[in-house]
Amino acid sequence: MEYTEELLGKVSDIVARVVRPNAEQMKSPAAPRTLTGTGNVAGSGNVVLVMGAAASEVPLGDEARATLDDLVNEVAFHESIKRGKPYRAASVWLATRRALDLPVRPAAGEHGRIERYLRGWLARVAAVEPNAEAGHDEKWRKRRVARILSTCKQLDRTRQLEQLLATRYGATVLIELRDGELDEVFRAVSTWV
């Protein structure tokens, strides 16, 4: 997209009214101005005008948005049950955007990251077992998960852990596992050398 001389003249007039030119700027001849493309910046001194918006990535498509909305609604449902009061889907979206540092309209490239986060959240909320064994509370689970992850990172076997979770348990993250399955993975990882 090419900007016309008329638009550039208007921008120059606005900048001239806002910024007082110093003596050096008054003496120098005006350079020819042409702007093309998107995301252009025109400025003088401490005033900068952004002209056009740089579209770095394509926004989420309808299908991707629908799958994420389904996950968000499911998380909101389980959070409402856990808390004993209504938890809205908008609150889930807000918490997700804050946690992942996302803009209001996320790009299509962020879909996988958002989905992984929401699945992890869903696993944390929905996988609470009412008849957990003694000692198998949230702190126990967190310690197990942390120990498994640190061991795999130490041994550089995170890919092997992902394969184990996918093939044996059909899970993508450790928090999706039940207590017994988490204990099995812990014992398996502790034997790796």
Rank of each mutant, 00 (worst) to 15 (best):
K142M: 06
A30R: 15
G135R: 08
G135C: 09
R141G: 10
F186Y: 15
E2G: 07
L102K: 11
R17A: 12
H111T: 10
T34P: 01
S56G: 14
R187G: 00
Y3V: 12
G43K: 09
H111Q: 15
D101C: 09
V125K: 01
N131R: 12
L100M: 03
E24D: 10
T158M: 12
M26I: 14
A55H: 11
M51T: 02
L68R: 05
F186G: 07
H136N: 05
L122S: 12
G43Q: 08
G170R: 08
L177C: 08
E2A: 08
R144V: 08
A146W: 01
L94A: 06
N40I: 07
V125E: 04
G61M: 02
E162S: 13
E63S: 06
I14L: 13
A107H: 01
E79C: 05
N40S: 13
L102P: 02
E133P: 03
E74G: 02
I81G: 00
I81M: 09
A146S: 15
A53S: 02
S12G: 06
L60C: 06
R144I: 11
A188P: 00
A108E: 15
F186W: 04
S190V: 02
F186R: 08
A16Q: 13
G39W: 07
Q163N: 10
E6H: 04
D69G: 02
L182Y: 01
G112P: 03
P86Q: 06
P130M: 04
L49I: 14
G45F: 03
N131M: 07
L149Q: 12
G52P: 05
V15W: 00
R168V: 13
L102M: 04
V48R: 15
S56C: 10
V18A: 14
E74A: 08
L8F: 05
N131L: 12
R147P: 00
A132F: 07
G109K: 02
R147L: 12
G109E: 07
R83N: 14
R88P: 01
A126I: 00
R144W: 04
R157A: 13
E129N: 13
L118S: 12
K85E: 11
P130A: 09
V48F: 08
G180S: 11
A95I: 00
L68A: 03
L164E: 13
G112K: 03
A134T: 09
P106F: 03
V173P: 00
L164W: 06
L149V: 08
E176W: 10
P29T: 12
N40A: 12
A55P: 00
T67V: 12
A53Q: 11
I81C: 06
T36P: 00
V11L: 15
Q154I: 00
A188V: 10
R168D: 14
N131V: 10
E5T: 13
L102C: 06
L122V: 05
E63W: 11
E6T: 14
R178Q: 09
Q25H: 10
P103W: 01
K27L: 15
